[in-house]
Design a protein around this nucleic acid. Structure first.
Length: 596
RNA sequence: CGGGGCGUAGCGCAGUUUGGUAGCGCGCACGGUUCGGGACCGUGAGGUCGAAGGUUCAAAUCCUUUCGCCCCGACCA
């Protein structure tokens, strides 16, 4: 491609709405443009990168035995109604009506549709296993789209679905996909971790997330520094210390006036003189967990919720409550932090002064192991502006003890006891064993070798394609711009002729043509621009290899070869520069584990 | 949905407090000089000031309503 004919609208200034590196650089580099909140169009450069990501995914999916299909983005309501997700999905589902008033929606994911496809066409165990995938736009009316391509309302997703005769076989399909995902993420040049995860609304019991490590990531994960254990903090475990407080030497509880000390920080500040840190403060949070009718969103008016719907959860001041674990302990789907008004109504005192010692109402009390181990703690006194010092679980308050907190940096690995390290991650892929969750609801069955009718055992496997494109930038950029991995760069090499000298342009064009002939995807910056502009643009859009040809070098028969990711350039005889580029491109692709 | 911020030329912004006929930088067009890290000089095109209503002799500016975007939180594959 000749730059003079290319549509690459780079920006010198940072668009004001962009914050994260990937967002800023995709906009500045002329890769994408926003059309509405969470809705973007791909400009030529973006489309090129996307094409490369897609082709790597296709390559590995096909290699793993999956077959590509394409399902509609616009779907009649009946399929999601069949499994109940028409109601469950709530506002996230983008709904529309056709001219006759019929209900439709844009597909947020396609389990129902693919299950329908298979139930109509597959009748025998002889036709299994089957793995079907598509790369297609997904639509979710996110409560808050953000960070450019990271969280969009329209986004490109690769979603695959496996169908097997048994749970055992389904796990084999799952393992195959897991391996394929490893190859895909590696070829994309991403630093990632596979972590245990919550299965969320999709359903199913076994799942793993492919988390791309990045400071800007929305997810928090922990990984063991000594073994393979890694998990999303939502489900992370730790080697539990189930020691219970030894209060034999603990003084009697003492009511202390603590005006205006509501937060842990303030309480710790107040009791600092007594040597009490956050790890000796008992934090009490009130959760509302109404049992909700099957398949319906919670309808209980908070103002009417009885005390029995509230739960007091006690954790150490330096710990955070894991709401998923609380919900699990209570046997409900989800819990919500109670409103301030509810807390006052039920416990007679506001947040900050609530405690587990003789609460005003008979609320259920759950105590985290670590909090139960505090032998001389401080907690809210259930009176305005008062805390209780010298309290201990077992003596001053009771409750059901369990694992309720978010695991974090420094906690003990549940599998080997080593130290866990905390990271932030971007969820790039998520793989699930679904079991018969969808097939049973949709009567999707086959006949096994005994002539018996059985539901398909399914798995599903997603990759956020557009999100991966942004993730790659989060991991590969510097102050000058993007540093694309060779495998997904919009061009593999850029040839920069400098100056107005006709001989320079002639020679640069010769090199460019030779690169193309050698199978290199090259860009020739033949624009009538000053050198600085060409350098800046090349760095910004992140082309991995740069061949610079100037008047001085040309006289000496030299070109300059520079890797975007490295600081220094080196001179290469013009006669050898094409070979050098070809060798470097192949070496880098090979290093990423792809075909060279 | 709660909190905060912002909508003025393609992009980034000033002007709003104290109403008076819309400005700067970049980009764009033309001419000239320049040419290895986003050059310089000159000329020029480009704006229903997010939208609607109101106050006023006069509204980007004041009042009301509304739409949109971003950030934090809630929520979320």
């Amino acid at each position: 491609m000749r730059y003079s004919q290319a549509f690459i609208p780079t920006l010198k200034e940072v668009p004001k709405d962009a914050v994260d590196a990937s967002h800023v650089l995709l906009l500045r580099g002329g890769f994408i443009r926003m059309i509405g909140s969470g809705i973007y169009e791909m400009l030529p450069l973006g489309q090129r990168v996307l094409g490369r990501v897609k082709s790597i995914i296709r390559d590995e999916m096909n290699g793993a035995g999956a077959q590509e299909v394409l399902m509609p983005a616009i779907l009649p309501a009946s399929y999601f109604q069949e499994t109940g997700r028409w109601d469950l999905y709530g506002d996230v589902l983008l709904r529309l009506k056709d001219r006759k008033g019929g209900d439709y929606h844009l597909g947020p994911t396609h389990e129902e549709i693919v299950t329908d496809m298979v139930r109509h066409q597959v009748k025998s165990y002889r036709q299994l296993p089957l793995n079907l995938y598509q790369i297609q736009m997904k639509y979710r009316d996110e409560p808050r789209p953000r960070a450019g391509l990271m969280r969009c309302r329209e986004f490109l997703m690769k979603d695959a679905y496996s169908f097997d005769v048994s749970e055992e076989k389904a796990f084999e399909s799952y393992a195959t996909m897991r391996q394929a995902y490893h190859r895909i993420f590696r070829r994309l040049g991403l630093d990632y971790r596979v972590v245990q995860a919550d299965s969320g609304q999709i359903g199913g019991k076994t799942s793993a997330e492919f988390q791309i490590l990045a400071q800007s990531g929305e997810d928090r994960i922990v990984a063991c520094t000594a073994c393979e254990y890694a998990a999303n903090v939502e489900v992370a475990e730790t080697k539990l210390d189930t020691t219970v407080a030894d209060f034999s030497a603990t003084p009697a509880p003492e009511l202390v006036k603590t005006p205006k000390t509501k937060t842990i920080e303030q309480v710790a500040g107040f009791f600092e003189k007594d040597g009490v840190g956050p790890d000796r403060i008992l934090k009490s949070l009130v959760f509302l967990a109404p049992k909700k009718p099957e398949g319906k969103a919670a309808t209980v008016e908070p103002a009417e919720a009885p005390a029995s719907d509230f739960t007091l959860v006690v954790v150490r001041g330096d710990h955070d409550v894991n709401e998923i674990l609380v919900a699990r302990a209570l046997g409900v789907d989800e819990v919500h932090l109670a409103s301030e008004a509810d807390v006052k109504r039920v416990l007679g005192v506001g947040p900050g002064f609530v405690g587990p010692v003789e609460p005003k109402s008979a609320v259920r009390v759950l105590v985290d192991h670590a909090a139960a181990a505090v032998s001389d703690g401080v907690c809210g006194a259930n009176q305005w502006d008062h805390h209780l010092a010298h309290v201990a679980y077992g003596r001053d308050f009771q409750g059901e003890v369990g694992h309720l907190r978010l695991v974090g940096e420094g906690d003990a690995c549940p599998s080997c006891g080593g130290k866990l390290a905390a990271y932030r991650g971007i969820e790039g892929g998520h793989i699930f064993v679904l079991g018969t969750h969808y097939s049973a609801k949709m009567s999707a069955t086959f006949l096994d070798e005994h002539g018996e009718s059985k539901p398909f055992v399914m798995g599903c496997y997603g990759i956020g394609v557009t999100r991966l494109m942004a993730s790659a930038i989060e991991q590969h950029h510097d102050a000058d711009g993007i540093r694309w991995p060779m495998s997904i760069a919009p061009f593999q090499a850029v040839v920069l002729p400098l100056g107005k000298d006709d001989d320079v342009l002639t020679e640069a064009t010769r090199v460019y043509e030779a690169l193309k002939a050698a199978g290199i995807d090259a860009l020739l910056d033949d624009r009538d621009e000053r050198p600085g502009v060409k350098f800046k643009d090349a760095d910004l859009i992140g082309i991995p290899l740069r061949v610079t040809i100037g008047a001085r070098g040309l006289k000496e028969g030299q070109a300059e070869l520079k890797l975007r990711a490295e600081k220094d350039a080196k001179n290469v005889p013009l006669a050898e520069v094409v070979d050098a580029v070809v060798a470097t491109v192949h070496a880098q692709l090979g290093a990423l584990g792809g075909p060279a």
